[in-house]
Design a binder for these strands. Structure first.
Lengths: 342, 342
DNA sequence: AAATGGTCTGAAACCGGTTTCAGATAACAC
DNA sequence: GTGTTATCTGAAACCGGTTTCAGACCATTT
């Protein structure tokens, strides 16, 4: 009852099936694999029956060994508690399953050492492809993996790593946010971002923001990172006299959470004193005050697309690295209705 | 550049290391495994150096084949987008890593057929143990797996499956909620739950609720499932004349989300017209109105404990199945301050 | 000197599959 | 009837490790 290793050994093996059906292992293997066309109907039927009677399930580990095909895809995620990552992961997983692949997810908790260990781990399990949503330090390991298997980046580029990349069209997202804010009558925008930390998407968003603010004479803008004394900084922004209504633009869901907390903390009347628009669209946005206006990312599609890129490469597509940018979707809510222009 | 299967073959293998070091495969295997004591210092040093020079990493798949030890734990999750599941999963993963195991997570999206497929899948990858957080239909597959490996249930029992079970102390949670509501002056409590759907934790919470309401002369209570016309039902509850202040008790995070949405929809002044306490403590609870009072589950601990149970079994503990119940933690916020008793 | 024991080591079998290769059989043409 | 080809099948090698087993070597003991 207790000796599980013995139990594992007692599993039905291919040899059992072969003997039960009175055929060779090779034939059973052909039946299992895609070579069923090679078998006569009579033998195929006998094998099919033997498999059913014994409840045989092929051992994927053993298959992967010789064949090199484990049907396993790896995904490296920086922070599994980030709703964005979860949503993308769900998209990837769905796509994987649809094509007969399974997903092994490794969470690095934003820790470089864990990233290194997990990369080694994934390699040791013979995954066929890798989806990366981390900072990608440990270039050596990444390069090695890239030589062995296709690799797709999600949301964040890795400096100097020439790979397919799937993510949001950040300039477009910023453009949509600013256009919306301007249309709603806001004039003074504070972009709130998590510390860059080398994260390409954050850097891109801030860069786009600054470039586009410069192009919009109506608007003035500044940037604030979350962190120490964040609420005080926000308060300072709100108290500084300005030539028009103010709005906050949160560069992702985590920033939106931090920001909303800070506004509560400093007793700001949400969305009457200040507008708010946030990237990502989380469950609770509609519930805060009169609802937070969002630029939703098509996370499911991003995940699915990341897997598709991988699949193409696995099937031998050797084109140059592609960038796939998705457009966000504006979801208007109360938080940007304070100074309606219409 | 394109032929990844060839690239995979080019990986350094144990034989390469053996030849490079001028020893046998067996010795290298002993070095890799825990049998290093068997080797002389001289040979060990040579192997160590060869491994370093070639950048050798053992192939876990191959190891698992003969040894039966894949160092893989499987986890079956009903809904990966449920924050509770994520939090538990994070706890499990952390514990896994601390003990040299890796976690393969399968998400069933609440679909029975996917549950069946994923069970088969996990088995085919020779996982050593399984953590289950689904409804556990497909008893046949589950029983089969249980024969082959230890199995731990999380949050939900599976009818008739004799396994370790880790979760919340539901009667205690209900007791804490009702005591808190009563203390705060509420008299009329509506328990909001997702449809039972055979989920043991939901059934337990409702049963405890009804039993305890019967024992508390001060309180009256009723139960409402989320679903069609939910908002109308809530409205009806609010409009029904009663002998004291009313409160909602959401039996989990999803119910809390649905509930808060419904309250907005029917234009209820949150927490002035009605009190609210919710099981689980999600990021956004503090942000809605004056904050939602929560009974936080120690999700990280639940996950860690689930893995520890598994580990004990793997190491040969053959005691009877255990139930481990964790106590929730009350986090008071504005949503139950409406009718303060003190 | 022979016998005993303990410590290391490598050859070979094994895990559960896949794949190569050669042989058996059937089908067809001449 | 023979030759040729096409179709099906199984023995055996292989994937990359682990483990068994027998033997080599050295140090003691009698």
């Amino acid at each position: 009852m207790n000796d599980f290793s013995a139990a594992q050994r007692s599993r039905v093996t291919m040899l059992d099936v072969a003997e039960h059906a009175g055929v060779s292992k090779a034939s059973v293997s052909r039946f299992i694999g895609d070579d069923r066309a090679l078998l006569s109907d009579a033998i195929a039927r006998r094998i099919e029956q033997a498999i059913a009677e014994l409840g045989y399930r092929p051992n994927q580990m053993a298959r992967g060994l010789k064949r090199g095909r484990t049907r396993l895809i790896g995904m490296l995620v920086a922070d599994i508690r980030n709703p964005y990552s979860i949503a993308v992961m769900h998209g990837v997983e769905t796509a994987c399953r649809a094509h007969g692949y399974s997903l092994v997810v490794c969470n690095t908790d934003r820790d470089d050492e864990q990233e290194r260990q997990h990369l080694a781990l994934l390699r040791s399990y013979n995954i066929e492809g890798l989806i990366v949503n981390t900072l990608g330090h440990h270039r050596a390991e990444l390069d090695e993996l890239k030589r062995e298997m296709p690799l797709v980046l999600v949301d964040r580029k890795v400096e100097g790593l020439d790979s397919d990349m799937v993510g949001l069209n950040n300039p477009q997202a910023v453009e949509m946010a600013l256009a919306h804010l301007e249309r709603r009558g806001y004039r003074n925008v504070l972009l709130v971002t998590e510390p860059y930390d080398g994260t390409s998407s954050r850097i891109e968003r801030v860069a786009s923001f600054q470039a586009q603010i410069a192009q919009r004479p109506e608007l003035t803008g500044s940037v604030l990172e979350t962190g120490d004394a964040f609420a005080q900084h926000v308060e300072h922004f709100l108290n500084t006299p300005a030539d028009g209504p103010k709005a906050l633009f949160c560069a992702n869901g985590v920033a939106a959470l931090t920001c909303t907390r800070a506004l509560r903390e400093i007793g700001c009347r949400l969305f009457e004193d200040v507008g708010l628009i946030a990237l990502d669209d989380l469950d609770w946005y509609p519930l805060v005050g009169s609802g937070i206006t969002a630029l939703a990312q098509p996370t499911e599609a991003i995940g699915a697309r990341a897997f598709e890129c991988l699949l193409k490469r696995l099937r031998g597509d050797a084109e140059a690295a592609r960038n796939v940018d998705f457009a966000p979707v504006l979801v208007e809510r109360g938080s940007t209705h304070g100074f309606r222009g219409d």
